[in-house]
Amino acid sequence: MDGKLRELLDISENDFDVVVRITREEDIAIARQMAKQLAQELGFSLADVTKVATAVSELARNIYRYAQTGKIMIRKRLEESGGPTIQVVAADRGPGIESVDRVLARGYTTHERSLGIGLPGVRRLMDFCEIASKVGTGTVVRVEKRRRKF
């Protein structure tokens, strides 16, 4: 787990099509917009474009809310075996998550203005979701969605 987190935190920005630094509240909307654009370029359906944009919105807000600063990195993958895929990595060096299982369960939150449906929602919207986190080191969430066949 520790090694995985280190590896993901040090992942090179150069491998991504878009990197959005999250430092202000407005950056959440910027990240969402960029994700939407890349999903459109990959030929995702309108509903799937909205799902990707919404998921990125949740990830960016979590960074802003719990770690204050961090980054959202997005890339298009055309050569994946399952078809064209969009990959998003949300990384921060914030406080970290005590129990990953708990944040993935609906209804868990440490924030007063939340119902705890952000991360579980992201997992349902995307095809793949992986979280690596350590208290005091940071959190990396990696998600993917492939273009549906029909």
Binding site: K51, P120, R124
Partner: peptide, 13 residues
Amino acid sequence: QPPVALTLAQMGI
């Protein structure tokens, strides 16, 4: 809008 409705439904909102 339909895409928004599908997204909300899938997130369970």
